[in-house]
């Protein structure tokens, strides 16, 4: 085969594989919309936020608590894991002696490989009873936030570390030779260069956090309510689907697909937000 021909075939193969991901995305969206169409056309949108309760078999579709539940668990986990992850990566990359860094690397890699159900199980056995001692019942928004933080933290640390590694070493060398302190170097040389990559990494993890189902389901208590404090139970959109899918029928089933659609819209908005932030960075 001539090199030119080979190139053309490779191009076709690549196009084919790219199409698979594009088509599957549209397929999922189409499926979600058609399946939830039944409830969308029969129920006014106001009911999702104004109803009194979630009794899908009796025509009450109060989705708002679950949207809020999902967002609170995700935001709480991100607020805890972003600073911890980034500071750990800074220590790892710029302060720790090499023996410490290599131990840290192994630990973080192992942690990121543990399945989330194991974290959930640990949450039920350790975190929930512990929280229960302060305030019953223990299964709560806070338990969900703690478990989810532990799930996303290793990956955020790994991502932040690999982004710090990509910062131009010559800039750092110049900065050191100019007598800049490590603190100044981190704030003024490393962070401005790492900002964009960190933002992308964090948003990807936020998407993963809001999609996490089992571990959250195990520790959050799953009561459909807007929580008054972090010690109260919540139900997330993902838990809602997982809990009820086994017996949901007709419009109930459709309501669960709507939960999925809403989840997807939230993730899509997160991605849109990153793009806008990146573009604003570029404009500066």
């Amino acid at each position: 085969m001539s090199p030119l021909k080979r190139d053309r075939y490779l191009h076709l193969v690549l196009k084919f594989f790219a199409c698979i991901s594009i088509v599957s995305l549209f397929f999922v969206i189409f499926f979600l919309v058609t399946e939830s169409w039944r409830i969308i056309e029969s129920t006014p949108a106001s009911k999702y936020i104004l109803d009194d309760a979630w009794h899908p078999t009796e025509g009450e579709f109060f989705l708002l608590p679950m949207i809020i539940g999902s967002l609170l668990v995700m935001i709480g986990a991100m607020l805890l894991s972003i600073p911890v992850g980034i500071f750990t990566a800074i220590l790892w990359q710029f302060y720790a002696p090499s023996w410490f860094s290599s131990i840290l690397e192994r630990i973080v890699e192992v942690l990121s490989g543990i399945p989330s159900v194991v974290y959930g199980f640990w949450g039920i056995m350790i975190i929930v009873p512990l929280l229960g001692k302060f305030q019953a019942p223990g299964t709560s928004l806070l338990a969900g936030i703690i478990v989810l933080t532990l799930i996303v933290l290793p990956t955020i640390t790994l991502v932040a570390n690999s982004i710090f590694q990509q910062v131009n070493k010559l800039h750092i060398q110049n900065a050191i030779a100019l007598g800049l302190s490590r603190f100044t170097i981190i704030c003024h040389i490393i962070f401005p260069q790492a900002k964009r990559g960190l933002l992308t990494g964090v948003i990807l993890q936020a998407g993963r956090a809001i999609g996490e189902t089992l571990a959250v389901l195990m520790v959050c208590g799953n009561v459909v309510q807007i929580p008054g404090s972090v010690f109260e139970p919540v139900r997330t959109l993902t838990s809602n689907i997982a809990l009820e899918m086994a017996y949901a029928m007709d419009i109930h089933r459709s309501a669960l697909f709507l939960s999925g659609l809403v989840l997807m819209i939230v993730v899509f908005m997160l991605i849109l937000m990153t793009e806008r932030m990146k573009n604003r960075e570029n404009a500066l």
Binding site: L170, N174, H188, P192, Q193
Partner: peptide
């Protein structure tokens, strides 16, 4: 240094 490297 060998390669001039002003900060960006």
């Amino acid at each position: 240094f060998q390669k001039p490297m002003p900060f960006p």
